[in-house]
Computed example of a mutant assay.
Amino acid sequence: MGWQETVAQTVTGMGFDLVDLERSTGGLLRVTIDWPWQPPSPEESSQPERFVTVEDCELVTRQLQYLLEVEGVDYKRLEVGSPGIDRPLRHENDFIRFSGEVVDITLKEPIGVTDAGVSANRKKFRGELERAEDGEQWQVVWTDAPPVKPGVRVSKKRPPPPTQALAFRLDEISQARLAPIVNFKGRQAVPKKSDD
């Protein structure tokens, strides 16, 4: 068993998911962990999502330092962290969890013309992640309309821009990540409920 499998077993044995494992040429080992996620059942009330803390990372770091020393793995620095805003999506469960989010996907092979008329000799797409109509595949949905500039009024009579969709199977993608979109305006105001 290689050191990668040993690291994966150790992380999962501690109750975490191994999201990513990377070894750079400069001797850096980067381990990305998260808490396991299961789709909520209809009977369960919505539980708040659990996030990885600094203490969790320290705990895993100490355990991995010991393990890597025993295994004789040569490295200069070990980093253990949480996935962040550009989290990789690797498994079916990740796609289910982040359905409805904006994602960046890279296909293994460029597409020609799709059924929806998307003509592109490209591999990279950004759009909202959805389950495709067939229930087997996934799709990204996007519009090529330019974003509306701040302060510009948009007429309510203006027709919505056409959307495009690209369906794919998980084995057709080489990489998928959450799109790192940051809202610098802070929390949006929640409309108050009326008392009547």
Rank of each mutant, 00 (worst) to 15 (best):
L67H: 02
L178T: 07
E58M: 10
P160F: 09
T32E: 01
F184V: 09
W37T: 01
D196G: 13
P191D: 06
H91A: 12
R97C: 02
H91M: 09
R153F: 13
V103R: 08
S46F: 07
W3K: 07
V52C: 08
G26L: 08
T10C: 05
A189Y: 09
F95G: 11
V73H: 02
I85D: 04
N183F: 11
S41E: 12
K149C: 01
V190L: 13
E55Y: 04
V31E: 00
G2M: 05
I33G: 02
T53Q: 10
V182T: 10
L68R: 04
L21I: 04
L107S: 05
W3R: 04
W37D: 00
K185P: 05
L59A: 12
I111W: 07
L64H: 00
S174K: 10
P88H: 05
P88R: 06
P146K: 07
D134P: 09
Q63P: 01
A116S: 15
A120I: 06
S45R: 14
F51R: 15
V70D: 06
V102W: 13
L170D: 04
Q65I: 03
S24A: 06
I105L: 09
T53E: 07
E22H: 06
T6K: 12
L28D: 05
A167E: 11
P110F: 06
F168Q: 04
R169E: 10
E49L: 11
R131F: 06
K76A: 13
V70L: 07
A189Q: 14
V73P: 06
W3V: 14
L18K: 00
K149P: 03
P39F: 00
R50W: 05
W35L: 10
R50E: 14
P160I: 01
F98K: 10
V11M: 03
T10M: 01
I105Y: 02
V118F: 15
I105S: 02
E22L: 10
W142K: 13
V7I: 15
T25E: 09
R50H: 13
G72E: 05
F16N: 02
E44L: 01
E101C: 12
V11A: 01
G100R: 08
R77K: 13
G186N: 02
R97M: 01
F125W: 11
